[in-house]
Amino acid sequence: MGDATESTVSGVQVQHGDHIDTIESVDFVFRAQRKLSFTYGAIFFAVTLGIPASSVWWKGWYATPIWGGFTANYLFVSLLYYIFLWAMAWTYSKQADKLDLTLEVMAEEIAAKAGKEG
């Protein structure tokens, strides 16, 4: 945690040094973060469970060689699945960083407003 001597907590906001989070701004970003995480999560689980589903029911996926001995199933599980994971993790991290930035801008606006009001 941060420097406790510079941190104060009030009813609806948290302050660490010059930096403030309000429950409203955190809730706003939380909802955006939740949407982002659960959207990516839905894609991840759809693909991850789609692989065994295809292995069970789609013969063209698991039994037809497409390159040497590679079936689509083998190629995806041994190589493409990892590329999918890397792309997901990278784009998700970038978008989550942007959300953090949104909260930062929002918090600075709140702090500036509070300063003007004295």
């Binding site: 945690m1 941060g2 510079e6 948290v14 302050q15 660490h16 040094g17 989070d21 955190v26 939380f30």
Partner: peptide, 11 residues
């Protein structure tokens, strides 16, 4: 706010 806020990190 401790879980989802970033004031501490900005500080």
């Amino acid at each position: 706010m401790r879980i989802h806020g970033t004031a501490n990190e900005r500080h």
